[in-house]
């Protein structure tokens, strides 16, 4: 079943935990979550490319995973002090950003364009899922109440996370297939890096 994964499928699986958990508390938290993930991914990529030979070894790989976890733990301690009014949103899921597969995806690929496309797609997915969940599940956007009663209270609960993620990923897949975006990005990445990605 995992053969021939599409770009949308790949991205949603690479950031699955963030997509499912980061959106239950609304758009604001989803934005912080995504930006933290992308920032951590950029730091990890820079570190990896600086010491590529070391991190390709088994010990180096484990140290890199530990570094990712360390960065997210540091941000977990730091960010609640900046966003004091949102402190309840920073739970243990935030530390798990450090072990999100998207952080370590295509590390050998030096193409900046490919990195930006991957993270923009993830950001889009996260934003779409969180917007729908907050709007349908709580009747608000960025805590601004639009509906007095939530139109679909299911959306704010765990079943809603699976349901909306499944639907959004399906719609993205159709759009990407229609415009053949996947083939274009894969070709760009392979041309720039010389590495063939599955």
């Amino acid at each position: 079943m995992n053969n021939n994964l599409s770009l949308v499928n790949k991205i949603s699986l690479l950031g699955l935990l963030a997509l499912l958990t980061g959106t239950g508390n609304g758009v604001f938290f989803a934005l912080i979550f995504t930006l933290t993930l992308s920032f951590s991914a950029a730091v990890i990529k820079i570190i990896y490319l600086q010491f590529e030979d070391f991190f390709q070894k088994k010990t180096g790989e484990i140290i890199l995973w530990g570094t990712g976890l360390g960065i997210s733990y540091f941000l977990y301690a730091l960010l609640p002090q900046i966003f004091k009014s949102q402190v309840e949103y920073f739970n243990y899921y935030f530390i798990l950003i450090g072990v999100t597969p998207l952080l370590y995806a295509e590390l050998k690929n030096r193409s900046l364009v490919n990195f930006i496309i991957n993270h923009t797609l993830f950001f889009d997915l996260m934003l779409a899922v969180s917007l729908l969940r907050e709007l349908l599940g709580q009747g608000s956007i960025l805590n601004y109440q639009i509906f007095t009663e939530p139109p679909l209270s299911l959306a704010a609960n765990p079943p809603g996370a699976f349901l909306i993620l499944g639907l959004v990923a399906f719609i993205y897949e159709i759009i990407i297939n229609k415009f053949k975006l996947e083939k274009r990005t894969a070709n760009d990445a392979e041309l720039e890096s010389g590495v063939k990605y599955e």
């Binding site: 079943m1 949603s12 349901l163």
Partner: peptide
Amino acid sequence: KIFHKEYTLFLVLAFLSAVMSGFDFL
């Protein structure tokens, strides 16, 4: 083939989690 992808599983998991939580959102 498009229905053989992971999002079909997400929909199944959505139904399973609704059953587990006893449809308490209703």
